[in-house]
Amino acid sequence: MDASSNDAFTIVGAGYRAHQPAIRKKGFWARLKGKPTLSVAVFSVIALGCLFSNLIINHDPAELFLMNVNEAPNAEFWFGTDSLGRDIYSIIWYGGRASIFIGLMSAAVITLIGVSYGCLSGVASGVVDSAMMRAVELLQSVPVLLSLLLILSLMGKPNELTIALVIGVTGWFALSRIVRSEVRQIRNSEYLLAS
């Protein structure tokens, strides 16, 4: 065979032809795959339902319907009733609203205390910083559940606000340590030392 020939290799086989991939348009669900669009939409519907629960509930969540105890889902009680006759559909939406409030409020308290304490500890001198971090370690060594129960018993009757404050007051320790280490790192950066 001639070295300059392009026929050095010949593809053989029954009915051989070059593969031409078919170009297909992606369907609606295939375009959503891997994107958070659907989950964000579902979460938004649930969050809005919880926030505006007083508009969509069909019974008072605390009311007892003793004639309808442990009832299966029906036209009057969409998710049924529990062993005390309370409407489960209304309880879910009302409880979701309380959970969202407690979560956001406690996150705000944790952020406020943790960032402030961590920044103060990060810019303080070595002795003060060491004392502040030992105090955090001491507080962090107490079990969180025990702290929560103790503080809640001292505050009296718990409501959504007090629960959020207690969770915030007992949950800022880890954030303060992270903020302190970042402040220490930035404090020792070359551009700050040069200025």
Rank of each mutant, 00 (worst) to 15 (best):
residue 52 F to I: 06
residue 113 I to M: 10
residue 66 L to N: 00
residue 159 N to S: 08
residue 53 S to F: 03
residue 186 I to N: 02
residue 89 Y to E: 12
residue 15 G to M: 04
residue 58 N to Y: 07
residue 4 S to L: 01
residue 47 A to H: 02
residue 136 V to F: 07
residue 163 I to N: 02
residue 187 R to K: 14
residue 48 L to A: 10
residue 73 P to C: 10
residue 71 E to G: 06
residue 183 V to D: 04
residue 25 K to G: 09
residue 6 N to C: 08
residue 56 I to M: 02
residue 87 D to S: 15
residue 98 A to G: 04
residue 19 H to L: 12
residue 148 L to D: 08
residue 88 I to H: 10
residue 106 S to C: 14
residue 189 S to Y: 15
residue 3 A to D: 13
residue 86 R to L: 12
residue 195 S to D: 08
residue 24 R to S: 03
residue 35 K to R: 14
residue 37 T to S: 07
residue 2 D to N: 12
residue 182 E to Y: 02
residue 178 I to N: 04
residue 50 C to N: 10
residue 102 I to P: 01
residue 125 S to G: 13
residue 12 V to M: 08
residue 56 I to R: 01
residue 149 L to H: 09
residue 124 A to H: 04
residue 191 Y to E: 08
residue 28 F to L: 06
residue 125 S to L: 07
residue 92 I to D: 12
residue 82 D to H: 05
residue 160 E to H: 03
residue 40 V to M: 11
residue 99 S to Y: 05
residue 102 I to R: 01
residue 123 V to R: 04
residue 97 R to G: 10
residue 159 N to M: 01
residue 49 G to I: 13
residue 95 G to K: 00
residue 34 G to A: 09
residue 67 M to P: 02
residue 1 M to H: 14
residue 14 A to E: 15
residue 23 I to Y: 03
residue 141 S to R: 09
residue 160 E to M: 05
residue 19 H to V: 11
residue 182 E to Q: 06
residue 161 L to P: 00
residue 66 L to Q: 00
residue 88 I to D: 07
residue 38 L to V: 15
residue 162 T to K: 00
residue 57 I to D: 11
residue 53 S to D: 11
residue 57 I to Y: 13
residue 36 P to S: 13
residue 84 L to G: 09
residue 194 A to Q: 05
residue 44 S to Q: 03
residue 87 D to G: 14
residue 182 E to L: 07
residue 155 M to A: 12
residue 92 I to S: 06
residue 111 T to F: 15
residue 183 V to W: 02
residue 140 Q to L: 13
residue 50 C to P: 06
residue 41 A to G: 12
residue 138 L to N: 01
residue 115 V to S: 15
residue 30 A to D: 10
residue 74 N to H: 07
residue 36 P to Q: 05
residue 103 G to R: 05
residue 29 W to H: 02
residue 92 I to F: 13
residue 120 L to G: 09
residue 57 I to T: 15
residue 51 L to G: 05
residue 97 R to D: 07
residue 136 V to K: 03
residue 45 V to N: 07
residue 14 A to Q: 12
residue 173 F to N: 03
residue 114 G to K: 12
residue 72 A to N: 09
residue 5 S to R: 10
residue 170 T to A: 09
residue 27 G to P: 04
residue 151 I to N: 05
residue 139 L to H: 07
residue 176 S to V: 06
residue 14 A to T: 08
residue 118 G to A: 05
residue 165 L to K: 03
residue 48 L to W: 03
